[in-house]
């Protein structure tokens, strides 16, 4: 069985500066895969290349076995790959409901869309309460929930979450992590990018450590949690 997503020797550069220097990894169906690493390691750049916002300079991206590295960004979501970007990027002057509906922009099945709006509202009850409110008025954690809910509206085969815990209170972060577990249980494949290594590794089947554009370590989440280098570098232990 082939992996849902296969990345081979991916390189991405901003002008002459190479931010991702030939990385390879896979995301298996039904699993949570995590990329951890410090600021500037190239994690966000990798996700932006996967969703077509950046063009790789070399390498291959195979999604369900077919190459997507030349597919324009607006056509990638139709293939089943949704991206909840770093910094949430909700549409601030639209209501919560309008944000969710934009997540389903390419879908035409009105009944299914309405059903999925309800599902997002069940998953994140705060969204139901504020449905007609401008999204810009939400707190950071609530915006993160909206961004995740919006990404789910396309019914993705692969959900990519970039730093979902960034800037959140510990309580809010727990909620987000619990939601990720819940989503996996319902069969969503997830590619997670996190700086919060402890939380991310403990719920990942597979994990990769990125350092200045390269993958320096990989294994199951549990293996990396036990790994000395990871403990020292990312979990603040010595």
């Amino acid at each position: 069985m082939t992996a849902l997503l296969e990345v081979e020797d991916l390189r991405v550069a901003y002008g002459k500066i190479e931010a991702v220097k030939g990385i390879s990894f896979t995301v298996e169906q039904g699993e949570v895969t995590t990329l951890i690493g410090t600021n500037g390691a190239g994690k966000t750049t990798t996700l932006r290349a996967l969703s077509g916002l950046l063009r790789p300079t070399a390498g291959k991206i195979l999604f369900e076995g077919s190459a997507i590295d030349t597919v324009p960004a607006h056509k990638i979501v139709a293939l089943g790959l949704a991206h909840s970007p770093e910094g949430r990027h909700i549409f601030p002057r639209m209501t919560i409901e309008e944000n969710l509906l934009l997540g389903a922009f390419l879908r035409r099945d009105q009944a299914g869309i309405a059903q999925d709006v309800e599902r997002a509202c069940t998953l994140f009850p705060i969204l139901a309460e504020r449905r007609k409110q401008a999204a810009g008025t939400l707190s950071g954690g609530e915006q993160q929930m909206l961004a995740m809910g919006r990404a789910l509206m396309s019914r993705p085969k692969l959900l990519m979450l970039d730093e979902p815990s960034m800037g959140l209170s510990p309580l809010m972060m727990q909620k987000i992590m619990a939601t990720i577990v819940e989503l996996r249980a319902s069969g969503t494949t997830i590619l997670l990018v996190e700086q919060n290594a402890q939380a991310a590794l403990s719920l990942s089947e597979r994990a990769y450590v990125m350092t200045t554009g390269e993958i320096t370590l990989s294994g199951t989440g549990a293996e990396l949690l036990r790994d000395d280098t990871v403990r020292r570098a990312y979990l603040g232990e010595d």
């Binding site: 916002l53 960004a73 607006h74 549409f91 639209m94 919006r150």
Partner: peptide
């Protein structure tokens, strides 16, 4: 609506499947 989304955040609009 796609136009409003593009005005507010063009990259994210692309992620929604909007041909900006």
């Amino acid at each position: 609506r796609a136009m409003q989304a593009t005005a507010q955040d063009p990259d994210t609009a692309k992620l929604m499947g909007i041909n900006t």
